[in-house]
């Protein structure tokens, strides 16, 4: 690890007592309270996350159907899964969905936060309007979105009846575009929480830096772009990790809005895993899907997280 300014240097101590963690000469003793403090969480995570992930990895290599069966079949489940059109569609959707959902939600969340930060009147009611979607069950908001986006009942019908005959908005009924309709509702659901994370961060930005930039003659847009946004980077990690996790877990929304249709054009790996596990009695393949999701998550998130940690260490 790099030289962290945040590191508590335990060694030289005027009074010698140094609290509990300064007493020990060995590293272990010195850090004992911190270790002790995180150990319940760590133990729980090792069992409930990594233990179960290992279980899943094992099952993905097994012949399990309805109940776990520990006879190994090698990579058969993975081969069969990657040979299935349904999985290929789901995996493709995940890439598109994650990219769009994360980027658009971050952008909309940041935009809302910046707008709300302009000393607007009615900030509290506005904030609640942007937050409420997270509170209401997706099983039902998904139905409302389904109706709104269906050209026969929702926005398109409304615009046409209002006199705009050529208006078309039919993403949800077309296989090629249905995933964008899901993105719209998913952004709606989480942008409010992300904007609150950003709003909080914005209000913690060092005023001196902003003042200096303004005195240098930077306009508001430049000030945001080159001073304020870089300063709230930690909020981007929180929001980014959160959104990637939500993207991977998006389930109810798809089930309620499109039932994975048309056909299975809006299937996602999460719905695939569920269907294989509980509807089609293919536990082995479900596990293979779950492991693939984890690998996908690790590939997109790990480099970023490690890079970010290095950077914050270096500060």
């Amino acid at each position: 690890m790099s030289q962290s300014s945040l590191r508590v240097e335990p060694a030289p101590h005027p009074r010698g007592g140094a609290g509990r963690f300064g007493r020990g000469r060995s590293g272990l003793g010195r850090h004992a309270p911190a270790w002790l403090a995180i150990s319940p969480s760590l133990l729980a995570i090792l069992i409930f996350v990594y233990g179960f992930a290992l279980w899943t990895a094992y099952v993905s290599l097994s012949a399990s159907r309805m109940v776990p069966d520990f006879a190994l079949v090698g990579l058969r489940n993975y081969e069969r899964m990657w040979g299935q059109d349904r999985w290929l569609v789901a995996a493709g959707n995940l890439v598109t969905f994650t990219a769009l959902y994360v980027v658009v939600t971050l952008a909309v969340g940041l935009l809302i936060a910046i707008l709300l930060d302009q000393k607007v009147r009615g900030e509290t009611p506005l904030r609640t309007i942007f937050l409420y979607p997270a509170a209401v069950s997706l099983i039902v908001t998904g139905i409302a979105w389904k109706w709104l986006l269906n050209p026969g009942t929702g926005v398109e019908a409304f615009m046409r009846s209002a006199g705009w005959e050529g208006f078309a908005f039919d993403w949800i009924i077309r296989s090629e575009t249905v995933i964008y309709a899901i993105v719209v509702a998913a952004v709606w659901q989480q942008a409010g929480f992300v904007s609150v994370l950003f709003l909080a961060a914005l209000r913690g930005v060092d005023g001196e830096m902003v003042k200096a930039a303004r005195l240098d003659g930077a306009g508001p847009i430049r000030t945001y772009w080159s001073v304020i946004i870089p300063a709230i980077r930690p909020a981007f990690i929180s929001a980014g990790v959160l959104l990637v996790a939500f993207a991977l877990k998006t389930f109810d929304l798809v089930v309620a809005m499109t039932a994975q249709g048309p056909g299975y054009a809006s299937a996602l790996p999460s719905t695939f895993v569920y269907d294989m596990a509980f509807q089609r009695n293919q536990l082995g393949m479900a596990a293979a899907g779950a492991i693939s999701i984890l690998v996908f998550a690790a590939i997109i998130v790990l480099p970023y997280v490690v890079w970010e940690f290095r950077k914050s260490d270096a500060r």
Binding site: R65, G261, G263, R280, Q282
Partner: peptide
């Protein structure tokens, strides 16, 4: 078995759409 049902559903819906 359940996987047969799944296969018929997949094909029917893929074809129809």
């Amino acid at each position: 078995i359940a996987s047969v049902r799944g296969a018929v559903i997949d094909t029917a819906t893929a074809f129809f759409n």
